[in-house]
Simulated assay, not measured.
Amino acid sequence: MRVGVPIFLFLAAAGFHTALTASLESAEKEDTFGEEVGLEQLSDLQKRDQEEFEAAQMSEAVQDENTEEENDTQEEDMTDRDGNVEADQHESESDEDVDGMRQKREQLEANVEEADETTNLGSPRLPG
């Protein structure tokens, strides 16, 4: 019996070692498989994310172009409006200048007529 106990312990330890090794190898395979599947899934997710990111950038670029075109159009409209306002102001000023000149001319003519009348009244007429 003394010989049987160490053999029994040896066999038990060997069995325990084999079971433990098999368990660890199984766990490693699962981890490796899980990592590979996880990497594939992660790779797919990264590809989708990259595609979505690129699509978002493209739509932003299109929106930026549209915004720039709208801004350019608005700036052109503003420039046209400013030019029209300046032209209108210039025309108004010209009209005001013409009106002012007419008033001055009318005043001068009125003054000349008054001066003529005053001169005619003050000087005797010579019979002709």
Rank of each mutant, 00 (worst) to 15 (best):
L11R: 10
E69M: 11
R102N: 03
R105W: 11
A61K: 10
V85Y: 07
G83Q: 13
T73Q: 10
E69N: 14
A19T: 07
D64S: 11
L108E: 14
E96M: 06
E76I: 11
A14L: 01
E30V: 10
A87T: 09
D72Y: 05
L24H: 12
F16Y: 14
A87E: 12
Q89I: 06
A19P: 03
Q41K: 15
D97V: 08
L11Q: 09
R81K: 08
A110M: 05
A55Y: 01
F8W: 04
E65H: 05
H90A: 15
V3Q: 14
S59K: 02
L126S: 13
D82G: 08
T119C: 10
L45M: 12
L108V: 02
H17Y: 15
E76N: 08
T67M: 02
R105L: 11
L121Y: 13
T21L: 09
S43F: 01
G122L: 15
Q46P: 05
L108C: 07
Q46T: 07
E86K: 06
E28V: 03
G15Y: 14
E106R: 04
L121C: 09
L121K: 06
Q41I: 14
S43Q: 05
M78S: 15
S59L: 03
D49M: 15
Q57N: 07
V37S: 03
A55F: 00
L9T: 08
Q50V: 00
E91K: 11
E106Y: 05
L42E: 10
Q103I: 12
Q107S: 14
A56W: 01
L11Y: 08
E106G: 01
A13W: 06
S94W: 09
T119N: 14
A27D: 03
E76D: 07
E109S: 06
S123C: 12
L20W: 14
F8R: 06
S26Q: 03
G100A: 06
E75F: 01
Q50A: 09
E106M: 06
F33D: 08
T118W: 12
A110Y: 08
Q63K: 14
N84I: 06
R81C: 04
M78G: 13
E93F: 03
T119M: 14
S92D: 05
E54K: 00
E25D: 09
E93Q: 07
V85F: 06
M101L: 11
D64E: 13
T118P: 05
